[in-house]
Design a binder for these strands. Sequence first.
DNA 1: ATGAAAGCGCTAACAC
DNA 2: GTGTTAGCGCTTTCAT
Lengths: 349, 349
Amino acid sequence: MAVTIYEVAKKAGVGIGTVSRVLNNSSQISPETRDRVLKVIKTLSYQPHAMAQGLARKKSLIIAALVPFFTGHFYIELLKGIQQAVSRHKYDLILYSIEDSNNKDFYLKRALQQRRVDGVVLASLPLSEHYAKEFHRRKLPLVLVDMFHPEFDSITVNNQAGAYLAAQHLVRLGHRRLAMITGHLDCAPAQHRHRGFQKALNEAGIKLSENLMISSDCLPGEASSINDGFNKETGYLAMQQLLALNGKRPTGVFIASDIQALGAMRAVRESGLRIPDDIAIVGFDDIELAEYVGLTTMRQPMFQMGMQAAERLMALIDDPNSPRQHRRIATELVIRESCGAVKKVGRVR
Amino acid sequence: MAVTIYEVAKKAGVGIGTVSRVLNNSSQISPETRDRVLKVIKTLSYQPHAMAQGLARKKSLIIAALVPFFTGHFYIELLKGIQQAVSRHKYDLILYSIEDSNNKDFYLKRALQQRRVDGVVLASLPLSEHYAKEFHRRKLPLVLVDMFHPEFDSITVNNQAGAYLAAQHLVRLGHRRLAMITGHLDCAPAQHRHRGFQKALNEAGIKLSENLMISSDCLPGEASSINDGFNKETGYLAMQQLLALNGKRPTGVFIASDIQALGAMRAVRESGLRIPDDIAIVGFDDIELAEYVGLTTMRQPMFQMGMQAAERLMALIDDPNSPRQHRRIATELVIRESCGAVKKVGRVR
DNA sequence: ATGAAAGCGCTAACAC
DNA sequence: GTGTTAGCGCTTTCAT
């Protein structure tokens, strides 16, 4: 049997209460006994039993992260950030990877009812009203990442501002015939990015009729609630549609996600056109491949977001009454080769 | 307060023992009482408290995965596989992401002593003798992935056979002047891949003098124990060395990891040479980008490996005396564009 | 078949 | 300051 607090107590010639106290370095214990106990703990290489502690304290020191695993790098970075914060606070991280809505519910239910986790961070996934209520009822701290809900703490990227910057970049390079390829518009980030794009065009005085927008909604494939339309195929197909617009083909296109941009770039390549000469592209996300293919894009600081989300969650666990926070993180334009240089000199501010 | 077993018992008019029994659908309980209890459980939407259960059963139903997070896709797939198995068995997964040797030790210690996890899967990381002993002493089930240790269950890819196949592919395409770019040779997979490569050359009767081998050992950069030399930079630099071999430059090169291959491909591009015309390349891993850049490579079924590792771990938890298993998984040659077609017709078998 | 009671290893309130 | 004890919510004998 593993060593328990009793053996430590006995060997140190004290009561278990005392041992417990030094463990939680609480109250005043005489330095001598503390040292003595500490020594015994070391020799026995004793560590408290996590579950026993959890049961007694009504705290597990575990948080759960519900993360969809579609687009690799993005969530890896997020997880790393979460992990870093979590481990700094001596918490553990239970990972629930969401593949579809079914197991999303399954895991939510699990997190909610098992009392195994002290809080959860939910990434990129819509929270139904049912579960919103449950989280409140159970008073289980929750923080949302890359997702907004008025009643819960969240940390999101400023999608609209980012898209605005991206479009503006294109405009400043002299492009006037612009298009955008979006994800499903029932997905908030896709929506906001579209709005930012529009705004930039409006400000630049570019007429709407010249602004082509292709949503991946209209493309083949299921639109399950877990599918945001951000994938290579939609990008590829959407770009094909754009290229088919002979004559009035756009010279610059903003694509709502890098992964779609990859597909789009392939479509351009296959058509014999060249990037950025014939068509300039700016993406969104800054996934790992973006650098590799020289894609200009908006970087989302996923690591930061993960870290802050976890940090916030643990603060919430400590103080459940802490006022709600909706943090917005700025994105950053990463200029690479997919946009080339200025098209019409005079236009650049 | 959340609902406990007592309330269920009271409301159902039975003792808590009975409730516990239906929970663990054990022994014979009269169908009537079972139904009654079940009904109450449902109405109260009761779920047992995980930590209380854990304490009483001396089982947490949690396993830990220690995974290094360097190369995205590879480990994401692995995690997905682990996750799938784990969730099928109603276990939870605690994720410890290793960034350096320090936190490797930290997490190992943690997993070992906290008694929070019933077992651990350790991926790609060397296990020191100290910790090997600790795992035995604590009788904590451990399974290794992409890593071998005689005393613990492991599941690895057949690196040697894979490299053999890769080299053979090059040979069959008519290449006679072959080179290999390896990772650090103190890293077992790199070593085995090198051995497989050699074997193929020997069989093909290709003299060793023509067989160029460049290890990334000799390249700049730290060789920490967590660094296997598998990264873009080593690939890039090694390929540059190869290209500098004017006249006796290899026509085909096998590269021990896709990530290095990416760097190598960049070096080739920059030199003005073309793939596969001037130089054919086959990689190893089949990372996500491999498809994108058309890299012929050996696929490692990471998802499968993760799943099997977790599956095995849980079997081990159920039956700690189950005899040790060292499973080897086959890799698969994925032919894309980086090798082109046959060079000398007659050579193809 | 089922109730009662003794733990599981710890924390925290209560004594002294 | 420090020992003692009553839980925390469950599983599991041991009776019956």
